[in-house]
Design a protein around this nucleic acid. Sequence first.
DNA 1: ATTATTGGATAGTGATAGTCTCCAATGTCA
DNA 2: TGACATTGGAGACTATCACTATCCAATAAT
Lengths: 213, 213
Amino acid sequence: MRISMLAERTGLPVATLKYYLREGLVPPGIATARTQALYDEAHVARVLLVRALTESASLSLAAVRQVLAVLDDPPASRHDLLGAAQHALLTDEERSAGTPGAPAADPWLSRAAAVVAARGWYCDTDDPLVRRLAEGLRAADAADVTISDEHLDAYARASETIADADVASVPADAAGAMRQVVVGTLLTDPLILTLRRIAQQQASDTAAARPTS
Amino acid sequence: MRISMLAERTGLPVATLKYYLREGLVPPGIATARTQALYDEAHVARVLLVRALTESASLSLAAVRQVLAVLDDPPASRHDLLGAAQHALLTDEERSAGTPGAPAADPWLSRAAAVVAARGWYCDTDDPLVRRLAEGLRAADAADVTISDEHLDAYARASETIADADVASVPADAAGAMRQVVVGTLLTDPLILTLRRIAQQQASDTAAARPTS
DNA sequence: ATTATTGGATAGTGATAGTCTCCAATGTCA
DNA sequence: TGACATTGGAGACTATCACTATCCAATAAT
């Protein structure tokens, strides 16, 4: 199919597709002449993937590029798969954060480590995710929002439920697994947050019905 | 305190504070002369809140404005509180989405409603949150990510755990409750997503240790 | 008295994500 | 075969966002 057909199939203007091609987010079509190239279903899927990641998962095109790079070249070992996937989802800043000498005993980092440890999980304060958690705790405190240990543990328990379901749904083949983990996680993040809000309404109604319990 | 002190306390350049004042995100100081105004701890807290919402919760300044408007003028009735809070967290587009005649029987909307109903929750396909859920499901499908009913139900169960903890932690006074619900939800969203990723690593390791179970 | 700081206004910046305009080469259909 | 639309490729242009910089005359500090 030609680019105008690709535009029709994806619902995007031709100019945007040209832009994605220029940016390397979508591979070039098969050139049949100097001003003609053919695109196939894989191109349609790729464009839809880019849109899903930008629109639904709110990724920047730079982040989409990172994700696509991992999908296009998945690590061979199944063991490295999740690690590579997680790595692909970090920001440049997070990736390059080496421990510069003394960590200055950040209280937020301590608490983040404690939350993780309380669930019986591993505990490495150098892990970018633990650092990200600490950063979130710091921001909440700066905004004068206090989160109790029980509250935080409830989040950790819920996360465990989610992660177990996630891991259980990973397909056997490497490429499919990569796709499911990386793209699946990104696209289900907003689902989880939306479900949380719906559940809040529900929990609030229930609490109102059974007032000062 | 003068603006330079406010800058020092918040760690932001004076130019940025002036910008926030201009944009109405931070209330003006008490003018003592035509070129002099005083700021207090409330201003410090406000600036830190704005930063927490933009940096940690990734809100745009326009969204921060919406949130602050609700915080500054909370609904009197406790019953309306969560509704108003939820309303404040919607986009303009979502707020203005009235049902235009026939809903065209969107399959994603049906599935979203089914997920909600399966948890024994209310079920209104006009609810902006249910629509948002449907939109997320549509995006996942477009990106060729399939989510089983069990998988989705695990998310719903986890969300219930989270929401119960959220509702249990809401303070009694109206202003504090508003703050906790709106700001607390926004700032804990990233915590939950980060915990999910950490839990995924954990679940993956566990699954690897107990291979083909 | 001199120097620094302030509030207020206006203009400029850099990043992001497109969108528009041209062009000569090609495809399509009469 | 010819008229006309479409294409790939390149470059310039645009809008939005979140600042940042510059000026100014009016204070404040020393």
